[in-house]
Write a protein that binds this DNA or RNA. Structure first.
Length: 477
RNA sequence: GUCCCGUUCGUCUAGUGGACUAGGACUCAGGAUUUUCAUUCCUGCAACAGGGGUUCGAUUCCCCUACGGGAUACCA
């Protein structure tokens, strides 16, 4: 089992699942499934200041809703737990000590005020703002003395001052960075918690992670991480940095310019199938021109090698189209289930399941998100309100003759079939001399409240004889 | 500012030196189907950031410039 591929999705619980994170989670998931490896969820909650109540539950809930199942994680356990970093502080402390022993890290007693002053001086001199390493020079005795006095401290990485580090990223290929541009990163904060950089390296190693697949914003941190792997004598995982998701103005996708929370998309009536498919295409493309994929198909097709390098704009127009596509193509029973909350919220009585399913079938190809569905279905549930323009058509002499004719002829019918309707349509033309728009528009207006809309037999079928009669007779007032 | 990464139609992208009059998808425009609308189908508009090389030949390789983004925290 040494060769088993293990990847992880490691979000910090700051409130909700971001669509960019969804894409990262998806790629991790897909790669794991593709190579029959393991997909792990780990919560990076080392920042106590950013703790958000309920964020983890929310994150897990959203992941469940879109169907991204993980093999190990905080709520389901696994052999490499705990999966909350906040529950692993002792582990990090131990390894930090090891780093000190190996002279790969050092105690730093600078206060945030000290740092602030240092930074201002550097800016004034036009220098780069980096920790100047003053605490590196502290002797063992001085350090011990400070420690004994109970002075607050952090532990910093003792990053090399010269030379260059070259590493290979699956997406970026060769990347090289000069050590002198890398800061002496804080590893253990003064509250005793580790920073992301330390925790992530230790956990990835302990959890036997083989591939780190994450956003591009981490690319410049890789040297810090590689430094740690090297100091510990560990083999680093393969790196794979994903191109960023962008706002329409090409800046990093943010809340300010629209929805970014997956739960909000779900609430608005985007289907998991569409969300996943759409997001999969942001940065990845199969060899073929195929763009419509189910999760299962993606699991077979996906490959890290075909991830591209440049950031992608999150184009809501295409998402809308894709969502509409799934609304039309997926099994109608499934769409009916997904649509149910929207009908309930609109106050529509959907207890008549047969009618409800018929309506779903009618309206689902007229919308791109479920949030629009009740508006389209409303004429089937509510009393129709007419505009002045509508009333003109309704009160038109021909229209009135038409309504009387249909009322009379439908009353005598046992059941309304499509044949019946077509026959009456023909009779309307033959006997009343009404045809074309003069025929269809008034009828659709009477029964559906709009001159445009579904085919007449469909409307009759959904409404049923009694309701059709009721609506027709209302026209004669 | 510094470091790193990137740059093909408006957007998502195909393309790894000749098969490119640069292909697909979304959007948009036109048409067909339909009593209407929606769906569906067809057609069209639209791009290799710029400049130097390398080469018989560059979208493809190298360099420079421009532009964009990311990172520069005791946040992740």
């Amino acid at each position: 089992m040494e060769s088993e591929i293990r990847v992880r999705f490691a979000p910090s619980p700051t409130g909700y699942l971001h669509v960019g994170s969804l894409r990262t989670a998806l790629y991790n998931y897909l790669y794991a499934r593709k190579v029959k490896g393991k997909f792990i969820l780990r919560i990076e909650d080392t920042d106590q200041a950013r703790y958000v109540e309920g964020a983890v539950e929310n994150l897990i809930e959203t992941l469940n809703q879109v169907g991204l199942e993980y093999d190990e994680g905080p709520d389901i356990g696994g052999n490499y737990g705990p999966y909350f970093q906040s529950q692993r502080t002792e582990i990090y402390g131990k390894y930090a000590d090891e780093l000190i022993e190996k002279d790969a890290a050092y105690f730093c007693f600078c206060t945030s005020e000290d740092l602030e002053i240092m930074r201002e001086e550097q800016i004034a001199k036009g220098e780069d703002t980096r920790y100047d390493g003053r605490c590196r020079k502290l002797s063992k005795e001085q350090v011990q003395e400070n420690l004994d006095q109970g002075k607050p401290y952090v532990i910093r990485a003792k990053i090399p001052k010269e030379g260059e580090i070259v590493f290979f990223d699956i997406v970026r290929e060769k990347v090289s960075i000069m050590w002198e541009t890398v800061d002496d990163q804080v590893l253990i904060k003064s509250d005793g918690f580790p920073t992301y950089h330390l925790a992530n390296v230790i956990d990835d190693h302990l959890m036997k992670i083989t591939h780190v697949i994450r956003g591009e914003e981490w690319l410049s941190s890789v040297p810090k991480h590689l430094f740690l792997y090297n100091a510990f004598g560990w083999k680093p995982p393969k790196m794979c940095h994903l191109p960023l998701l962008l706002n329409p103005d090409k800046s990093k996708l943010s809340k300010r310019q629209g929805d970014v929370a997956v739960e909000d998309f779900l609430k608005k009536g985007y289907l998991p199938e569409a969300l996943l498919n759409f997001v999969a295409l942001l940065g990845w493309h199969s060899k073929s021109d195929k763009e419509l994929y189910s999760l299962e198909e993606l699991e077979k097709e996906f490959s890290l090698k075909r991830i591209n390098k440049s950031g992608s704009v999150f184009d809501i127009e295409k998402l809308n189209w894709m969502n509409g596509h799934y609304l039309r193509e997926l099994e109608s029973g499934y769409v009916a289930i997904k649509a149910r909350p929207f009908f309930i919220k609109a106050g529509f009585d959907i207890n008549d399941n047969e009618k409800y399913l018929k309506i779903i079938e009618v309206v689902r190809n007229r919308i791109s998100t479920l949030s629009e569905i009740t508006k389209v279905a409303a004429p089937f549930y509510e009393t129709i309100k007419y505009s002045e323009e509508d009333k003109q058509i309704i009160n038109n002499e021909n229209s009135q003759r038409l309504f009387s004719f249909w009322l009379k002829n439908i009353q005598v019918l046992d059941i309304i079939t499509e044949e019946n309707i077509n026959r009456l349509l023909k009779q309307s033309t033959d006997e009343l001399g009404i045809k074309g728009k003069d025929l269809y528009f008034p009828l659709r207006l009477a029964l559906f409240g709009s001159v445009h809309g579904p085919e007449l037999p469909v409307i009759f079928d959904v409404l049923g004889k009694e309701e059709v009669l009721g609506r027709l007779s209302k026209m004669l007032d």
